[in-house]
Design a protein around this nucleic acid. Structure first.
Length: 817
RNA sequence: GCGAAAGUGGCGGAAUGGUAGACGCGCGAGACUUAGGAUCUCGUGGCCUGUUGCCGUGGGGGUUCGAGUCCCCCCUUUCGCACCA
């Protein structure tokens, strides 16, 4: 038969047909009963997108396809796979875009969502469209507000005045996490400091647990490391330094410092307070007051960008005050400097210039004494310090600590000081409380009512949702309050407790709160009277597999872990960790560079799917490189998978009924084994390669395939090319979807083994030939064969054999000299 | 600076300590075609005239019969965090 007579593979026809049939048959969606009664539930989650006006980009599709391949594979194994998708549509992104376009977000978002939905369907994801969420819909944010109330009632949400990062361009408060190198992560504008009353969640109370639980999670190591780093636990001590009065006597006031190296206390030669420190006034004497105040004012004016300059030059001024080193008894000067941060530890440090790089630099600059208290190998007590020594060693110039290795000294000195009330062991975390209020419009109103008599009062749960009103003017201004504060009709209300006139909270909440619990909502969207159904939640959660980007390694994942822990502690959930496994996918670049409009290498999905089909696009994306490291998208490369699917279509349709060839059958079982193992590990690129290799073998020499040789391949390819697989499956005579029923092929280990093997023959580790032998052949036989190989024999002439290394079925190595 | 990951053909990338470069792109040659950016076949790390051969996984040491893989030092790149005491 010539190629011209064969039916051509037309992706668009196949894909339209199956997308329609999946919808009609409800192939990918669960009814409430099915959710309740699923025999073998598998919750496959991917990070829901923010529905931008530009539409889905390749990065989204890459992530979703990788997750979808995993879900479809689990389903082919026979599991009941729930794979929902939704839209994270609140937030500054949408609001700013709406402002720019002059469209109201309430009008903009629905059309973006419709566009995303169309695109997502077109990519062939196995999404359950009956269980989707849109965070901006009152039926969703009603429960986001409910989550807030649970924390509020538990005392984990608190309003307090705090210095915050203020973006003068976005006109909003940013979380520390949203400040990148002192600039707004969204618009790169320099961030300023302001003091505003804000709602905070006390995530710091969970810091230790958030850290400890990491050890129990099956997550990408890089993600766990990022979280550990972010939580930033450090173990040290809180020490108290007596402040001296003008006469050089203890004044009764103490300065508290936090240090991770209390052992170096004998080397503390000066003290530094943050410029904002409460005791600055008190320790400053009259002679030094003008420069201190000037420095303090300058520091206050500096925004966070300036404060966090990488610039290593230290600045600071002497206050004129002194305190006493509690162990040496020596008076040491008190300085203020902005390299000491007010938000970490106690806002004051004991400076040990000999053993801390920052202190060393400061001491050099201002000619303060530098004392060695740790001696490294080969150092004595008086060995000069050309730079701070931070390595291991033993204590010197440290009285009773002398000779101790510093970790031991650390414990000992804390013990010594605690006896005198001058210090105690302390653990510190870098993690800060989570500021969840936003002085913006496009978010769920925080469900609190402020009453003059009762203070902040929770909106009764029966009154939820507090609906975000539609207002024409949603533009933020420099007032520092939400646009909702302009709507007197909206915010005027009465106190739910005492009935007095009261005022609604006009701030809205952070989008990370919306996305912090969405996975709980998906399986329960059939219920509008509860955030998540108890039975369904205990059946489906925690999430079995979560796949997403490492850009959310800290914030989103940490916040959702925190919320899950809280809801667990409050008795709402039976588990405290939301995601059993998490895998971070890599980043897609294009033509060797990061995608950007200016480089003109942005990959636009729609026309590619139009030309090659979703199946080819999916397969290619998964073939580009290891899923967990990403890959380089090159347009020409798509020809490989495109040709592969064409050949697959052609080969299956023209397959005959004969017996499978034994060699092919062996390769088939090996291929099934490899693809099975690699799909489990998300090693998609090599799994696709194995299938290509197998198809090449089936077609080699232009032979006609036997049906038994290719039918299992259709199932193997189904996670990658689901439409084509369905089509071929149907043409092979099946009436049910390939995804219904456990159609993943089994392999027979016995059938993967060859009866003959090629054995490498080396002389002194260099390959000199190969010989063929029966599988499992013994040493004597194989070595004899090897010795007779012409080329090997040549290398064995005129040398002395010392040893023969034999590895069964693999190699023979003659060691000669 | 700290933390994480990675350096292999022209390119994307494969390799339980055991025949480096699977699979694919690109390229070359050929076949079939009125034509083809279609399809099919063969070839494709470098060097030498060459099937024998030599050299090859960022650089330098080491362990081993045998190292891309393990250990030590160095260089480079990417990502994240950045004065956290």
């Amino acid at each position: 038969m010539s190629n011209d007579d064969r039916e051509a593979y037309v992706p668009s026809q196949v894909e339209e047909k199956w997308q329609r049939l999946w919808d009609e048959r409800g192939t990918n969606s669960f009814t409430p009963d099915e959710l309740k009664n699923a025999a073998d539930p598998f919750y496959n989650l991917m990070m829901f997108p923010y529905p931008s006006a530009e539409g889905l980009h390749v990065g989204n599709i890459y992530a979703f396809t990788g997750a979808d391949v995993h879900g479809r594979y689990q389903r082919l194994l026979g599991r009941d796979v729930f794979e929902p998708i939704g839209f994270d549509a609140f937030g500054i992104h949408s609001e700013n875009f709406a402002l720019k376009r002059g469209v109201h977000p309430m009008d903009l978002i629905p059309s973006n969502v419709a566009n995303f939905t169309r695109q997502l369907r077109r990519t062939g994801g196995m999404f359950d469209w009956k269980h989707t969420v849109d965070t901006t819909h009152p039926s969703y944010y009603r429960w986001t507000q409910w989550v807030f109330l649970q924390l509020f009632k538990a005392g984990l949400a608190e309003r307090k005045e705090a210095p915050v990062n203020w973006c003068p361009s976005c006109m909003t408060v940013l979380a520390n996490e949203q400040v990148i190198a002192g600039a707004c992560e969204r618009c790169q504008t320099a961030v300023e400091q302001r003091r505003i009353a804000q709602w905070f969640f006390h995530i710091t109370r969970y810091a230790q647990r958030l850290l400890d639980n990491l050890d129990t999670l099956d997550w990408s190591e890089s993600t766990k490391a990022a979280q550990r780093n972010w939580i930033g636990r450090s173990e040290g001590a809180r020490l108290r330094f007596p402040v001296l009065d003008a006469g050089g006597h203890d004044s009764g006031t103490f300065i508290e410092v936090y240090t991770t190296r209390p052992d170096t206390l004998y080397g503390a030669t000066y003290m530094v307070l943050a410029p904002e420190h409460a005791l600055v006034d008190r320790v400053t004497d009259d002679g030094h007051r003008p420069p201190v105040l000037a420095y303090r004012e300058a520091a206050a004016k500096k925004d966070l960008v300036a404060r966090q300059k990488v610039d290593k030059t230290k600045t600071g001024v002497f206050t004129g005050g002194c305190c006493r080193n509690p162990v040496t008894g020596q008076p040491i000067p008190i300085w203020i400097a902005d390299y000491v941060l007010t938000g970490y530890g106690t806002g004051a440090i004991m400076a040990v210039p000999g053993h801390d790089e920052r202190d060393f630099e400061f001491a050099e600059q201002f000619e303060l004494p530098i004392v060695r208290v740790v001696a490294g190998p080969g150092d004595g007590p008086d060995t000069p310090l050309p730079e701070a020594y931070v390595g291991d060693g033993v204590m010197v110039n440290s009285g009773p600590l002398d000779g101790l290795p510093w970790p031991e000294a650390k414990a000992k000195i804390v013990e010594m000081l605690s006896g005198h009330g001058l210090g105690e062991h302390e653990v510190n975390f870098r993690l800060r409380d989570w500021c969840i209020s936003r002085q913006r419009y496009w978010g769920p109103p925080i469900p609190v009512i402020h009453c003059d008599a009762c203070g902040p009062v929770a909106v009764p749960e029966k009154d939820l949702p507090v609906v975000l009103p539609r207002v024409a003017d949603f533009k933020p201004d420099d007032s520092g309050v939400s646009p909702l504060a302009r709507l007197a009709d909206w915010f005027r209300t009465t106190c739910p407790e005492c009935g007095a006139p009261a005022r609604r909270e006009t701030d809205v909440s952070d989008t990370f709160l919306d996305s912090g619990w969405y996975f709980l909502r998906y399986p329960s969207t059939d219920f509008d009277d509860r955030p998540f159904d108890t039975d369904i939640t205990s059946k489906w959660l925690p999430v079995d597999a979560y796949i997403g980007g490492n850009e959310h390694a800290v914030l989103h994942l940490l916040y959702s872990r925190f919320l899950t822990m809280v809801l667990h502690d409050l008795g709402h959930l039976g588990f405290e960790e939301p995601y059993r496994t998490f895998r971070a996918h890599g980043l897609i670049i294009a033509e060797g560079a990061k995608m950007s409009k200016s480089k003109g290498n942005v990959v636009v999905p729609d026309p590619i799917i139009e030309e090659y089909g979703a199946d080819t696009f999916r397969t290619y994306l998964m073939f580009l490189g290891p899923f967990e490291s990403g890959g380089d998208y090159r347009q020409e490369g798509i020809q490989g998978p495109f040709g592969f699917l064409h050949r697959l279509f052609d080969t299956v349709l023209s397959a005959g009924d004969g017996q499978p060839d034994p060699h092919i059958e062996r390769k088939l079982h090996r291929t099934i084994r490899q693809v099975t193992e690699q799909l489990r590990e998300l090693q998609y690129n090599t799994a696709v390669a194995a299938m290509m290799e197998y198809l090449n073998a089936v077609r080699s020499g232009g032979r006609r395939a036997a049906r038994a040789e290719v039918e299992p391949l259709v199932a193997l390819v189904a996670p990658f090319a689901p439409h084509l697989a369905e089509e071929l499956w149907e043409r092979l005579g099946h009436t049910e979807s390939i995804f219904d029923g456990a159609n993943w092929p089994a392999y027979d280990e016995a059938k993967t083994v060859d009866d003959a093997v090629n054995i490498a023959v080396q002389v002194n580790g260099k390959l000199r030939g190969t010989v063929q032998a029966a599988k499992g052949a013994g040493e004597a036989d194989v070595v004899a064969l090897a010795r007779n190989d012409g080329n090997v024999a040549r290398h064995l002439v005129g040398v002395t054999e010392r040893k023969v290394v034999f590895v069964r079925d693999r190699l023979v190595n003659f060691v000669v000299s």
